[in-house]
């Protein structure tokens, strides 16, 4: 098979040298079994060593190589050349500040992940000698889907609400909170509600559902957020009926 020549238009930015980002074009002979990341690596090895981008696993489990490919938030290791036309536009992820070329600043996202207390908060802490916290397969099944998130941030790039207000806690962090809230070993829901059930939490979501569409692992953050809304609404009515109750 002869390689197909694809024109990659890539948004470049080096804050040391440039006033604003500019497109640069590279012509790459692509094998049909390549992914876009292979083409980027070809550019890096053969054409231009200054091109900067993140990647690690090349198999859609690390979530590092997220970028906009022809306008869609995509993992470049899972975007196959065979599905793309002869011209491809590559930009850094929407809704994030650019650090350099295709590398974006993730501090805001990481802070939001932390804000939902994404760890097991058990009723009683067990010592090492007391052994592990047990769970049945049926209990695991209730939240397993929400554990599959790889923190690729595609959902933040796709979310119109996050584009509108960067203070929105956002899809992946809310889905992660939901994952722990549904965990039979966890009692941390109340502690998470300050962030999760706030105006900038689940109630900021207008259920466009773009997050779930771009998710490479079918986590369905939109579904998680709607489930959390229902549970929070329940809390509200319970508080009306039984004021001062302990949730």
């Amino acid at each position: 098979m002869t390689p197909r020549r694809i024109e990659f238009e890539i948004l470049r930015y080096d804050p040391d040298k440039m006033q604003k980002p500019e497109f640069q074009t590279y012509l790459v002979p692509c094998e049909e079994d390549w992914v876009v990341l292979d083409a980027l690596n070809y550019i890096k090895d053969e054409l231009d060593r200054t091109l900067s981008y993140r990647w690690s696993c090349h198999m859609a489990v690390c979530g590092s190589c997220s970028m906009m490919i022809n306008g869609e938030p995509t993992l470049s290791c899972k975007s196959f050349v065979r599905d793309l036309p002869n011209q491809v536009c590559i930009e850094p992820l929407n809704n994030f500040p650019i650090e350099r070329d295709l590398v974006v600043v993730l501090d805001d996202f990481l802070g939001k992940l932390n804000s939902v207390k994404p760890y097991l908060i058990p009723r009683e802490k067990k010592s090492l000698e007391e052994g592990v916290y047990l769970q049945s397969p049926a209990q695991l099944k209730k939240f397993k889907q929400f554990t599959l998130c790889i923190n690729c941030t595609l959902c933040y790039a796709a979310c119109p609400q996050y584009a509108h207000d960067e203070n929105f806690v956002g899809p992946a962090a809310l889905a992660l909170a939901h994952r722990y809230n549904l965990d039979s070993r966890d009692v941390g829901r109340t502690a998470r509600q300050d962030v999760v059930a706030s105006n900038l939490g689940i109630w900021e979501c207008s259920f466009v559902g773009a997050c779930s569409e771009v998710c490479p692992h079918g986590v369905d953050p939109a579904g998680a957020i709607q489930q959390a809304k229902i549970a929070s609404t329940g809390d509200y009515f319970m508080d009306l009926i039984l004021p001062g109750r302990k949730s």
């Binding site: 040391d16 060593r49 200054t50 900067s52 070329d101």
Partner: peptide, 11 residues
């Protein structure tokens, strides 16, 4: 070294 930038220099 082809990339002489001080920002996210993967080269």
């Amino acid at each position: 070294l082809k990339d002489k930038s001080n920002v996210y220099n993967t080269d």
